[in-house]
Simulated assay, not measured.
Amino acid sequence: MIELTLNNGVTMPTLGLGVFQSPPEQTSAAVQTALELGYRHIDTAAAYRNERQVGDGLRRSGVPREEVFLETKVWVSDYGYDKTLHAFEKATGKLGVDTLDLLILHQPAPSRFAAVLDAYRALEKLLADGRVRAIGISNFMPRHLDALLAESDVIPAVNQVELHPYFSQPDVQAADAAHGILTQAWSPIGGITFYPGWGEDRRSVMDDPTIGEIAAAHGKSPAQVMLRWGIQQGRSVIPKSVHPDRIAQNFDVFDFTLGGDEMTRIDGLDTGHRSGPDPDEARDDAFDRVIDEA
């Protein structure tokens, strides 16, 4: 397993299991399977409503807590200094842990920027107190990042964004790199193509002929090629699955290398069209969703 070093010296496995939209009743088994296969990095979020099941899977696996890099996210309805400190308590209570390896603000919510800043200051406090080992952001575009950095003391360690061959966000990657922030890819194999109202291009990356040709040349699947592409470019990738065979396949990406021309061909697939929500859009109904207590 390749490890990445964050800007505060904390190390993180480059590949993890994501559980976005994993049904709670399937999440525990998926996490247990992943950890038994060798995964040591799990990504969840308060808004996914499956943190409790992630904790169950961790305990059922028998893998010691200190061996697993565990990250979760604070939802917008819990933004604000005191509310975000309480969000940490809710998350750790559901997960059944005392500390988190990475705690992230889930959305930039520019229409609620004052609350974003207060929430981030709470993350800084949790970091200073040793309750979290690293702090980060998600879905922040360069303009959101600049606004945050102008008002904060700690540079985020991670920015988790939609990133796959059809939407590689080079401007976001460049802005992150300029500040020493690790770009983490959600939907790294392009599976997020079902958000109603977003995305102008619904083609599945899995069916792309270029990806298929490269996969055939290496005796690998399209998903494995896309994960390898992200890993070789120095990103963290967190593919989601609840199927044991796919969880295993997604982890089997460390025994081959893509050539420079293959990497260039994949880079050339970018359409510039996102499949997930626009981070600038004020989605009050979603943002106001109440996160349950632990």
Rank of each mutant, 00 (worst) to 15 (best):
A45R: 02
D278V: 12
G199P: 09
A157T: 07
F167D: 01
T84P: 01
G190K: 11
Q26V: 02
N139H: 01
E67L: 02
T72A: 12
L17Q: 03
F254C: 02
I231R: 12
G93Q: 11
G136P: 01
E89I: 10
P108N: 01
W75D: 14
Y195H: 14
I231K: 13
L145Q: 06
S241N: 07
Y39F: 11
L58G: 00
L103D: 04
Q32E: 15
R228E: 07
H273P: 00
R60G: 01
G38D: 02
E293R: 00
A30G: 02
V158S: 09
R40N: 07
E293Q: 13
V158I: 13
G268H: 08
Q26W: 00
T72D: 14
S236R: 11
A47M: 14
H41M: 04
W229S: 12
S221Q: 08
G130C: 14
T72L: 10
A114Y: 02
G259W: 03
K94A: 13
A128H: 09
E281A: 13
F113A: 11
R289W: 06
D245E: 15
A216G: 04
T99A: 14
A174E: 15
A174D: 15
M141N: 05
S111M: 10
Y39K: 14
A47K: 05
P142T: 08
F20V: 03
Q184M: 12
L117T: 07
T257M: 09
A45S: 10
V242W: 00
L145V: 04
R202T: 12
A157I: 03
E89W: 13
V19P: 09
E67K: 09
T5V: 14
T271H: 11
Q169P: 04
P64T: 14
G96W: 06
V132T: 14
A150Y: 03
F113P: 00
E71N: 15
T210P: 00
P279M: 04
K73F: 02
P165F: 06
S61D: 13
F113H: 14
T193W: 08
H273V: 09
T193Y: 10
A215C: 11
P13V: 09
D118R: 11
G276I: 10
A223V: 00
K90G: 05
R133N: 09
V253L: 06
M141K: 01
P222V: 07
R40P: 02
V132H: 12
L85I: 09
R121Q: 05
D118K: 12
Q173Y: 06
A175S: 15
G197H: 12
A150N: 13
P239F: 12
A174Q: 15
A46D: 03
F140E: 06
V63Y: 01
D201K: 10
V63H: 04
D82I: 02
G219A: 09
R283H: 08
A282V: 08
G62R: 11
Q184P: 03
P23T: 09
V31R: 01
A185N: 10
F113E: 07
P239R: 07
A217Q: 12
P24Y: 15
G212M: 01
T11S: 14
W229Y: 15
D255H: 08
T84C: 06
R59C: 08
A177I: 10
A150W: 02
I135P: 00
Q249R: 15
R235A: 08
M206R: 15
